[in-house]
Design a protein around this nucleic acid. Structure first.
Lengths: 341, 341
DNA sequence: AATCACTCCCAAACCGCTTTGGATTTCCCA
DNA sequence: TGGGAAATCCAAAGCGGTTTGGGAGTGATT
C-alpha cells in the first residue's frame, strides 16, 4: 500500500493525503481524521526511500567506529550507546567500522552519497584530523569526547576526565597513599591525556614528584592491566595504589595483585574508571571497585540529541557539554598500609 | 555533482553514463573509459537515496539487538561483528536496539518502510518467535545461533556449543575432576541450553550424576560469576573445577576462587568460553584461561556473507553452518587436587 | 455587486537515479 | 548491394514520496 493507492481509495489527491499525514495545516480536520484512520486501517507506512529522495535528507546518522590499524581493538562502548533517541525521531543509525588510515575517504563518501545527515565522532585523538575534515566537507557532527589541540570550534560532549582522575588521586592521597601507579589507556587518545593530567595535577598539589616507572599507557585489556601492575609491584619501591583506566584493565590489575599474594583494598588499593556499561556492571549491590563513574549510556543519549538538534537547526552554533564523573566508593580501596609507608 | 551534470559535461545522456559506471555491456569500451575517468576526476559519487528508490532495494541490512526488559543488558558481541563485508558490497549496516516486547512491530516496520533488505537475528532464544515472524512477512534473515524448538526451516550459523562444552567437561574429567560446577548464561538463550546439554552428556557418559547445586544460570557478568562460584565453593562438597559461560563471568569466578584463598589452576580449575572479542583478549602470548574458543568476528563475517547471498539469490534455500570451537589450553586448569579427591 | 481574504484541495514538477523501448549507425555476408 | 544483426546511444517513463503554484468555493467587507 503506497500513498497513491491510499489516496485513490480515499478519493483524494496524494498531495492532500501526504499533508494530512504530515500534519500540515491546509487540510480540513475532518479530512485529516479520515486519512489517518484509513492509513491505520490499511497499515500504510510511507516508503522511507522515497521520503529520503524527495526531502533530500538521509534520516540517518552515522557512527564511524575507528579501528586502529596498529591495535586491532574495537571500542565496544558504543554498544550501550544506541538508544531510542534516533528511532523516536525517525532516524536510522548507520554503523561503519573503518581502519584509521581510510577515515578520510569514508567520511567523504558518507557525505557525497548522502547516506547520513550527520555523524558521531567516536574515540577522538590528540589533534584529531576528523574535526577539520568534517567541518570542511560540511557534515554535521558531534564529538563524543574532545580533541586536544584542535582550534576550530566544534560540538562535543565529554566527561571531565581530568577532574575525575584528579579527585581519584586526591582520594588516594588522603588515604595516605603516596606511591600511586597510573595504568592508563593509550595516550594518543584524548581522554587518556586528560586523565594523566588530572593525576599529575593532584600529585603536584601535594608536592609529590611523578615517577615514570609508575605510569603505564597501553591498550585497556585484562592482560595489559596485569602486565603493567605486575611490573610495578616488582619494583623495589612498589605502589600501594593503582589508578586504572577501565573496568577490564582493573580486573587484570586485581589478578596481578593477587598473584603477588597481596590483598586488594588492604595491601593495595585500586580505583578504576567505570563507564557503567550494561554488560560490565561494577558489582550489583555494592561496587566491586572504587571508581570514577560516568554512564556511557547517558552520554550517548545526550550526544544523539545534540546531533539531531544540530541537524535540524539551520545555523548551528557549536554546542558543548561537560559531564562530571561521580566518585563511587567500593571494596577496592583502603588506607595505605603502615608497613609500606 | 550528480549523474545529469556529469552526463552534460561529457556530452552524453544520463542513460549511457549510468550504464558505463555500472558495467553494462551496451556501451563502447572507449566511452566507458572516458566516463570512468570523468567520474573519478569530478569525484562523482552516486546518490544512494536515488539508487535505493530507483532499484527498490534498501542496500542495507538490519541488526536488531534485543534488549531484555527484565535484564537490561546489551549483548556487546556485535561490536566485533561488523566487518567490511557489507561495505564491500555497497551495503549499509543499520542498527536498532529494541526491547523484546516490541520486536514484532520493529521487524514489521523495517519491512513495510523498506528500510532493509534483510536482517541478522541476534541472541536467539528457545522457541524464538522472530523466526516465524520474519518468515511470514518475507524479510530475509540469518540467525546467529539457532533456536531450539523451531520447526520451520531457516538459515543459521552457529557454534557447536554442545560439543564445545562436552569436550571441555571431558577434559576436566580426564584431569580427575569429578565435581564440576557449571556457571551458565541465562538458560532461555539457545546457546546456554546447548552448553548445558553438552555438560550433562559428558557427565552421563562417565556415569556421574548431575548435582543441581553445581549448576547455575544467570547473566554473564563478573558479579554473577563471583556469586555463583562463591556459593558453590561454600558447599560442604565444593567443586574442583568450573565450566564458565564467558570471559567476563570467568573473571568473577577467579575472584571468588582467590577470595576463598584457593589458587586457580592448582586448587580449582576454570574453563571459560572465549568469543575471542577484540577488546577482551584471553591473554596475549599464553591464554589466561583454558577455553573453548570460537571467534565472533569470524562468525560475523560468515553470517554477513550468508545474508547477502540470501538477499541476492531469487529463490533462497535455507543455509546452515555449524562451526566447531577449539579447546585452548591455558593457565587456569590442572589436575584435580589429591586432597579433595 | 464587486473585492478580498481564507480555507481546502489538486495538478504537476521535482528529487537523482535505473531501465525499457526504441533509433541510429556500423558491420558482415549472401 | 541490400538486408539483418550487432553495437551504441538516447528519450522518456518510472520509483514513491514532497512541495510549489494555483483554483474553486465560502464569507465577510465595502
Amino acid at each position: 500500500m503506497n500513498l497513491k493507492e491510499l489516496a485513490t481509495k480515499l478519493g483524494l489527491s496524494p498531495t492532500t493525503v501526504s499533508r494530512a499525514l504530515n500534519g500540515y495545516p491546509e487540510v480540513n480536520a475532518e479530512t485529516r481524521e479520515r486519512v489517518m484512520a484509513a492509513a491505520h486501517r490499511y497499515n500504510y507506512a510511507p516508503n522511507t526511500r522515497a521520503i529520503r529522495l524527495a526531502t533530500g535528507r538521509a534520516l540517518a546518522v552515522g557512527h564511524v567506529i575507528p579501528i586502529m590499524t596498529k591495535h586491532e581493538i574495537v571500542n565496544p562502548v558504543f554498544a550501550d550507546f544506541i538508544g531510542e533517541t534516533y528511532s523516536r525521531q525517525g532516524y536510522d543509525m548507520l554503523l561503519s567500522v573503518v581502519p584509521d588510515d581510510d577515515e578520510d575517504r569514508t567520511y567523504r563518501v558518507l557525505k557525497s552519497r548522502g547516506s547520513v545527515d550527520g555523524v558521531i565522532v567516536h574515540a577522538p585523538r590528540l589533534n584529531d584530523p576528523r574535526i577539520a575534515l568534517l567541518t570542511e566537507i560540511g557534515l554535521p557532527f558531534v564529538v563524543h569526547g574532545r580533541a586536544t589541540g584542535t582550534t576550530i570550534p566544534y560540538s562535543w560532549l565529554d566527561v571531565n576526565n581530568r577532574r575525575a582522575f584528579l579527585r581519584a588521586t586526591e582520594f588516594l592521597l588522603d588515604l595516605g597513599h603516596t606511591r600511586i601507579g597510573l595504568i592508563n589507556g593509550l595516550e594518543f587518545m584524548d581522554f587518556a591525556i586528560r586523565r594523566r593530567n588530572g593525576y599529575l595535577e593532584a600529585l603536584a598539589a601535594r608536592a609529590i614528584a611523578p615517577d615514570a616507572r609508575l605510569m603505564f599507557s597501553d591498550e585497556m585489556t585484562e592482560a595489559a592491566g596485569f602486565h603493567a601492575a605486575s611490573t610495578m609491584i616488582a619494583l623495589p619501591d612498589p605502589p600501594t595504589a593503582f589508578l586504572v583506566a577501565s573496568m577490564i584493565s582493573g580486573m587484570g590489575v586485581r589478578r596481578a595483585v593477587e598473584a603477588a599474594g597481596r590483598v586488594v583494598g588492604r595491601d593495595i588499593s585500586i580505583i578504576i574508571h567505570d563507564d557503567d556499561l550494561s554488560y560490565l556492571p561494577n558489582g550489583t549491590d555494592v561496587p566491586i571497585f572504587t571508581a570514577t563513574r560516568s554512564s556511557v549510556r547517558e552520554a550517548g543519549r545526550m550526544v544523539a540529541e545534540m546531533l539531531l538538534d544540530l541537524i535540524s537547526t539551520p545555523t548551528p552554533a557549536p554546542r558543548e557539554r561537560l559531564l562530571e564523573a561521580e566518585l563511587i566508593i567500593g571494596q577496592s580501596t583502603g588506607p595505605a598500609p603502615r608497613a609500606v609507608q
